[in-house]
Amino acid sequence: MSVTTTTSTMAPPAAKPVSKADFVSGQDVRWCPGCGDYAILAQVQKTMADLQFPRENVVFISGIGCSSRFPYYMNTYGFHSIHGRAPTLATGLKIARPELSVWVVTGDGDGLSIGGNHLVHTIRRNVDLKILLFNNQIYGLTKGQYSPTSEQGKKTKSTPFGTIDYPISPLCVALGVEGTFVARTTDTDLKHMAMVLERAARHKGTAFVEIYQNCVIFNDGAFKGITEKSVRPEHALFLEHGRPMLFGKDGTRGIRLDGVHPEVVQTAGGKTDGLCVHDERAAEPTLAYMLSRMRNPDYPVPFGVFRAIERPTYDGMLLDQENQATAKLGAGDLQKLLKGPETWEVK
């Protein structure tokens, strides 16, 4: 009756070798031509094949929005649920079936607006799920209203005079609730995305990945000034654990701490003395949080793994409690339970 007790995200490798094509479902992909979602889909399929995930043990769960069509295109188990609620279904599934590899695909509207509550609590609990949040800073499926990550002043159909909302930062939220794996990548850098996805897949606990995703129709070029190849070196900072934070052409600039504030400095002749060294494993999320606050134009935008720490997972601890209770009390006896603490006999 009870299911297996492994808490590993990494399902045992597939019995028969699987290729990327095995993860492609037969369904017609209905995203707009040129949408950033295509690149993400292809990379996820490739990562699954690279890691030899058995298709039957993988479940993709989504909410509502353009990104949430994702499960239909994965030849795994999938669930296209309701707006904002994917993390809840994923949590229930993971509790019932801890041995499955459960992935949540969400967007900036689905995950941070209508589903914000579930997102923070899921990350806080450290349920062993992989959450991919496609951030395009707009509502695509409902045709172009501003989203919680849209920059202030943005003119959209619902904000003809510009938004007056202050935007939310997905990574600040994830770190604020002490996410154990928090990363950012972009649809325009497949190599980087592959690295981040693989790291996420191997993480035990909630892996939260923000993916900058271009919506060609309603918010084209939202990240152009950061992620396009020509400007990337000057405007993006690629984090590597244990390495000084360098960016700019030929690493000519770096990040230094001035008290509790980051500052951009010129590095003289490749010297890295005094620069901030990235530590994704720091027990305190303070440095990671500082990085998540950095944005253009004052700072380069960081990409990579901000935080990756080990901490017991919700599903793991649940099983531990179950095992402890069984060890202490023995396997439950239904008849005894029905009798309860006090009975009397009528003759």
């Binding site: 599934l93 509790i95 019932a96």
Partner: peptide
Amino acid sequence: AEDEIAAIGATIGAAFGG
């Protein structure tokens, strides 16, 4: 769960899982 919706969402997820 964190709220009523999450409670049934998780329940649906668990039902999907068997």
